[in-house]
C-alpha cells in the first residue's frame, strides 16, 4: 500500500486521524518491527541447542564428567521452568497472552531439555527396563501439564506426538510419505482408535470451554491420524476393505461436521481428499475396469466437485 492510498482512506473518513498517523509510521518504516526475525533466530537457536545436547549425551554417556554435564543440563531445565513459573499468568481456561515476546521459547527450551534429562536418567541408571515406552508416556503427561499450565500450543503438539508414539504411531507427514506409517502391521487399527479417542477428548473439552483454542491442534492430529489409519486399513486388509471404507466415511462425516462448526476449511480439505481416495478405491473395485472410463470418471468427479465449490462460494467464503 502506498502512503497516498492511506491518505485516501483518511480523507474518506474510513480511518481516524490517530490511526492514520500510526499506520503511516508503520508504512513508511518510521517504526520497524523485527519481531518475527528475532523469534525465528530464537527458534533456530533452541532447535540447534537441544539437538546438539541430545547427540552429546548419547555419544558421551558414561564418560568422566558426564555427571557434571547432567547436573548442568538439569540446572538449565530447572532454570527454564523457574522462569516460566515466575512470569506465568495464573491459569485460565481462555487464551493467555504470553508475558514476554520470548516467553514461549523459554518454555519450549525447558520442555525439550526435559526430554534430554529424562532420557539420560533412564539410560544411565536403567530405571525403567522396558525401553522407551514409559519414558515417552511420562514425557507426554508432563507436556500436557506444561501445555495447559503455560498455555502453549506447540508443547501441546509435542505432547500429542509423544502420546502417539507411546502407542507406536508416528505422527508426521514425512513418515507417511516414506511409507513407514502404512507398512507397520496393525498400526492402522491403533491409529483409528487413537484418532477417535483424541477427537472425542477434544470435543468434550471444547464443549466445556476449556482452552477452546487448543481444539484445532487436537482435531488436526485426530482427523489426520484417524483418516490415514482407516485409509491404510483399506489397502492393508484388502479382504475387509468395505469395513474400513465405512470407518473412513464415518471419520469424514465427523470431520466435515467439525469443519462446519468451526468454519475451518482445512478439515473440509482433509475429509474430501481422504473420502475421494476411499471412494475411488471402491469404484475401481466395482466397475472402473477400462482406461477410458477411468479418465472419464476423474474428469466428471472432480469437475462436479469444482462446480459445487464455486456454485456455493458464499458458504465457503464465511469466516477465516
Amino acid at each position: 500500500m502506498r502512503p497516498s492510498q492511506l491518505q485516501e482512506l483518511r480523507d474518506k473518513g474510513l480511518i481516524s486521524h490517530d490511526q492514520h498517523t500510526h499506520l503511516h509510521a508503520v508504512l513508511t518504516k518510521k517504526i520497524f518491527s523485527v519481531f518475527y526475525e528475532l523469534r525465528t533466530i530464537l527458534y533456530l537457536g533452541v532447535l540447534l541447542f537441544t539437538t546438539g545436547i541430545g547427540i552429546l549425551i548419547y555419544k558421551n554417556i558414561g564418560e568422566i564428567g558426564h555427571l557434571l554435564s547432567i547436573i548442568g543440563l538439569f540446572a538449565l531445565t530447572v532454570g527454564c521452568f523457574v522462569y516460566a513459573f515466575r512470569f506465568a499468568h495464573p491459569y485460565s481456561d481462555r487464551r493467555i497472552k504470553p508475558p514476554t515476546p520470548f516467553y514461549d521459547y523459554i518454555v519450549l527450551l525447558g520442555c525439550l531439555l526435559f526430554i534430554s534429562v529424562i532420557s539420560y536418567v533412564q539410560l544411565q541408571y536403567s530405571l525403567l527396563d522396558n525401553g522407551m515406552g514409559i519414558t515417552t508416556l511420562i514425557t507426554a503427561l508432563f507436556f500436557f501439564y506444561a501445555a495447559y499450565r503455560f498455555d502453549h500450543i506447540v508443547v501441546l503438539s509435542l505432547a500429542i506426538t509423544a502420546l502417539a508414539s507411546f502407542w507406536s504411531i508416528a505422527i508426521s507427514p514425512q513418515k507417511w510419505y516414506s511409507g513407514d506409517f502404512i507398512t507397520e502391521s496393525n498400526h492402522h487399527n491403533t491409529a483409528i482408535i487413537f484418532g477417535a479417542a483424541i477427537g472425542i477428548w477434544s470435543y468434550i473439552l471444547d464443549r466445556k470451554e476449556i482452552k477452546e483454542h487448543f481444539t484445532f491442534t487436537y482435531m488436526n492430529f485426530a482427523s489426520l491420524v484417524f483418516l490415514a489409519g482407516a485409509l491404510s486399513g483399506m489397502f492393508i486388509d484388502e479382504h475387509i476393505y468395505l469395513l474400513y471404507l465405512l470407518i473412513l466415511y464415518l471419520g469424514c462425516g465427523a470431520t466435515i461436521l467439525f469443519a462446519h462448526k468451526k468454519k475451518s476449511f482445512l478439515f473440509l480439505l482433509y475429509a474430501f481428499v481422504f473420502g475421494y481416495i476411499g471412494t475411488t478405491y471402491l469404484l475401481s473395485d466395482v466397475f472402473l475396469y477400462e482406461t477410458g472410463l477411468w479418465f472419464f470418471y476423474l474428469l466428471i468427479s472432480c469437475g462436479t466437485f469444482i462446480y459445487f465449490i464455486i456454485r456455493f462460494k458464499n458458504y465457503f467464503k464465511r469466516a477465516e
Partner: peptide, 25 residues
C-alpha cells in the same frame, strides 16, 4: 522438534524390538 525428540529416544532404545517402528526413521 518432534523429530529430534524421537531420534534421541530411539537411539537410546537400541535394538528394542517392538517399539522400534513407533519411533522415527
Amino acid at each position: 522438534l518432534g523429530d529430534n525428540r524421537v531420534t534421541v529416544d530411539e537411539s537410546f532404545n537400541g535394538g528394542g524390538g517392538g517399539f522400534g517402528g513407533g519411533g522415527a526413521s
